[in-house]
C-alpha cells in the first residue's frame, strides 16, 4: 500500500481529470472522478459494464459536455472545447464499436485523417496550385508510411468494411495516429480478439507508444492485457473511482475484487 502515495512531480502529467462529473437528467453517469495520466505512461481504466468508462472518454474528447469538474491537457483546461479542437491539440481515440469510414479504402481512411498536416486552401485545391500538389504528395507519403508501420500496407486498397475484425481495430488505431496525437484513448481495443491477436495488439500498443512518444489511456476487459500493459490502473464502479494503483495493488484490492474481478482474493 505504500506505493500508492508515490507523488508525481508537477508538469509531468499530460492529462489531469479533476472532479469530473456528468449527469444525464437525474442520473450521474460519472461523479467526482479524479485521476491523471503521466507523460509517456500507459494508464488502464477498468470497471464493470456501465461504470462510466466510455462516458469518461466522451467527456475528455468533448463528445459530451462536462457537467462539473475539469479536464486539463498539458495544464490547459479543455472541457468546454469542441471535439475537433481537442483532436487538433493532440487528444484522439478509438471507439468501442469500431467507427471506420466503411466505404473508403484502408489508405483513404488514413489519408483523410492526415488532413491536419496540410494547410492548402479550398481555392488552392480547386486550381491545383503547386502548394496543393506538394502537400498532397506529403499527405500520401505520410499515410503510406503509417500503414507500413502497423503492417497494413498490403491491404491499402481494400475497402475498410471488408477487413477482418482484428485489422479493422488496427486500422482505427492508425487512423488515430495520423493526427500525430500526444494522448491516445483506446476503448476496448481487444474486444472480440482471440488470445493470439490480443498478444499482438499488446505488443503493437507498446511499440507505438515508444515510437510516437504517446501517452495512452486504455479501457479493457481483458485483465491479462491490462495487468501486463499498464503502469497504473483506475477502477471505476457506478461512476465513481473505486481504486487506483499499480497492477499488483489492484489485483489484491478487496473492493476491486468484490466489485469487478469476481475471483476470491488470495486464491493461491
Amino acid at each position: 500500500m505504500s506505493e500508492r502515495t508515490t507523488t508525481l512531480s508537477p508538469g509531468s502529467e499530460i492529462l489531469e481529470v479533476r472532479g469530473l462529473t456528468k449527469r444525464f437528467g437525474g442520473l450521474a453517469a460519472v461523479s467526482g472522478v479524479d485521476f491523471s495520466v503521466r507523460e509517456g505512461g500507459i494508464m488502464g481504466l477498468i470497471g464493470p459494464n456501465g461504470a462510466g468508462k466510455t462516458t469518461i472518454f466522451n467527456l475528455i474528447t468533448g463528445v459530451y459536455k462536462v457537467s462539473e469538474g475539469s479536464v486539463l491537457f498539458r495544464g490547459e483546461p479543455i472541457q468546454d472545447r469542441e471535439p475537433y479542437l481537442i483532436a487538433d491539440m493532440g487528444v484522439t481515440r478509438t471507439f468501442q464499436n469500431i467507427r471506420l469510414f466503411k466505404n473508403l479504402t484502408v489508405f483513404e481512411n488514413v489519408l483523410t485523417a492526415c488532413h491536419l498536416s496540410a494547410s492548402y486552401t479550398l481555392a488552392e485545391a480547386a486550381l491545383r496550385l503547386p502548394r496543393f500538389r506538394r502537400e498532397e504528395r506529403a499527405l500520401r507519403d505520410k499515410a503510406s508510411e503509417l500503414l507500413k508501420i502497423v503492417g497494413l500496407e498490403d491491404r491499402a486498397e481494400v475497402t475498410a468494411s471488408n477487413l477482418p475484425y482484428g485489422l479493422q481495430r488496427r486500422l482505427e488505431i492508425v487512423r488515430a495516429l495520423a493526427l500525430d496525437p500526444k494522448l491516445l484513448l483506446l476503448d476496448e481495443p481487444a474486444a472480440g480478439m482471440n488470445p493470439d491477436e490480443t498478444e499482438q495488439l499488446m505488443r503493437l500498443i507498446g511499440e507505438l507508444r515508444d515510437r510516437f512518444k504517446l501517452s495512452v489511456l486504455v479501457i479493457e476487459h481483458h485483465m491479462d492485457l491490462i495487468m501486463a500493459l499498464c503502469e497504473r490502473i483506475v477502477v471505476l464502479n457506478f461512476g465513481m473511482k473505486l481504486a487506483e494503483g499499480v497492477p499488483d495493488e489492484i489485483r489484491n484490492d478487496e473492493r476491486v475484487v468484490e466489485a469487478y474481478l469476481g475471483a476470491p482474493a488470495g486464491g493461491k
Partner: peptide, 16 residues
C-alpha cells in the same frame, strides 16, 4: 466524405 461515412469519427479526427 468522412462526415458522410461516420460523423462522430470525423469529429474525433479533427474535422470541424
Amino acid at each position: 466524405i468522412a462526415i458522410r461515412e461516420e460523423e462522430l469519427a470525423a469529429q474525433i479526427a479533427g474535422i470541424n
